[in-house]
Design a binder for these strands. Structure first.
Lengths: 220, 220
DNA sequence: GCTGACAATATTGTTGACAATATTGTTGGA
DNA sequence: TCCAACAATATTGTCAACAATATTGTCAGC
């Protein structure tokens, strides 16, 4: 039983730890990230914690002020809108590239997830739908074969992670979203690149539309 | 005369310094970046240098192996292709957004640069054309008003900086590129978002096409 | 001459102590 | 009570010494 003595986490691991907590709201915007606290909770050395925070600053997730340390950067509605615009561009082109050169395995996976999504609609399970929805988008990006874009999207999604679940608690949005998915799936399997791209763009734009209605009073 | 005693550079500044040298080829792919050397050349402390290298690793510009330090990451033709695909998506949507909501000042600037580009074609000055071309693209991204995308593109352009000049030494490519610019300028000023986006996509795709012909034997 | 083992050097990784600054607490007076 | 000045504490920034590892140099043996 060596479970006791597990090695101290590396800088990247600490960064992952903090990033996860930011993503799911365990660390809220504006909150100060005190080095000692993170040391206590992760068991990492101070160097590693500092390294992690600097990495996260590079990702734009935290801001570091001299002698005041790191704090979680908050993303306003304007920036969210810009992120969605970037998603429209990037995931749009990914949809096209998926239609062009996805493997049969990728297509099979997408269909499998689509089946589960359909089930979620019947079951009225918005939370599970949200998670599968992430998976659905991820498969398309992966299947496009463009790792550069995949990396960009992973980073872009962190600050809006919470929002990606928000809209599905609205029943009608959940249905229209799934309808979008089904139409898009047909286009993707048929190899209609342009159609798929247009559909993906519309789908994401609609998502933001719904979202901004829900969240407008929060940011307003 | 206090020029003697200028403060030691900060981590971000060292990162900028190294990034610039990577961008213009002063640090070549695969080259090892020894901490002491950078300390000597920049006057920064070791902590700062290490911080800088970690930041650059986060940007994907260098790779750090344990006890072997940082080395300049090389980008293969495949990755270059993926970067160009991302550029097509992002700059495409920027062109559209520029057409939709650019200020008169932005438009004026773009016209001014276009005039200079025209002059470059007459003067057969490919190097100057390359620099102004960067400026031309930058203005469109800026004018779109999307800072998130602007940041993404700034990063994406670092590894391909050298390539962005390469193709203009071919006379015919220089002419067609400038013709593209002129057509696009008309669409942008007319507020034709869809036309502008399509034009931008084609323009960048053509650029990559020419490039891959030039560089294929290098990467071959 | 070549190879493998060993020593010497160079380079990076880690830690802890200390300095600089911010934040909080306290006290005295109007 | 409130406020300003000061003291105490907390937190971050910096640096240098040391440890761990890689790289290079040397040399005996074949």
């Amino acid at each position: 039983m060596d479970g006791m003595e597990k090695r101290a986490p590396t800088g990247v691991e600490v960064a992952d730890w903090v990033r996860n907590r930011i993503r799911n709201g365990r660390f809220s915007p504006g909150q100060r990230l005190v080095e000692v606290d993170i040391i206590r909770q992760t068991g990492a050395s101070r160097s590693k914690v500092r390294e992690a925070l600097q990495r996260l600053e590079g990702e734009g997730l935290v801001q570091i002020e001299e002698f005041r340390g790191a704090s979680v950067k908050s993303t306003g509605l304007e920036e969210v809108a810009q992120i969605y615009r970037a998603r429209i561009a990037l995931e749009g082109i990914c949809a096209g590239d998926f239609a062009r050169n996805a493997s049969d395995e990728d297509k099979r996976q997408l269909c499998a997830v689509q089946d589960q999504l359909d089930q979620c609609v019947l079951d009225r399970a918005p939370d599970r739908f949200g998670r599968l929805n992430l998976e659905w988008h991820r498969i398309i990006v992966q299947g496009s074969g463009n790792m550069v874009i995949a990396e960009l999207l992973k980073r872009l999604n962190v600050p809006i992670h919470r929002l990606l679940f928000e809209s599905f608690y609205d029943e009608s949005r959940l249905r229209t979203a799934n309808a979008d998915h089904k139409k898009m799936l047909a286009l993707l399997l048929a190899g209609d690149a342009e159609g798929a791209e247009a559909a993906m763009r519309g789908h994401i734009a609609d998502g933001f539309e719904t979202l901004s209605k829900i969240e407008s009073e929060f940011y307003g």
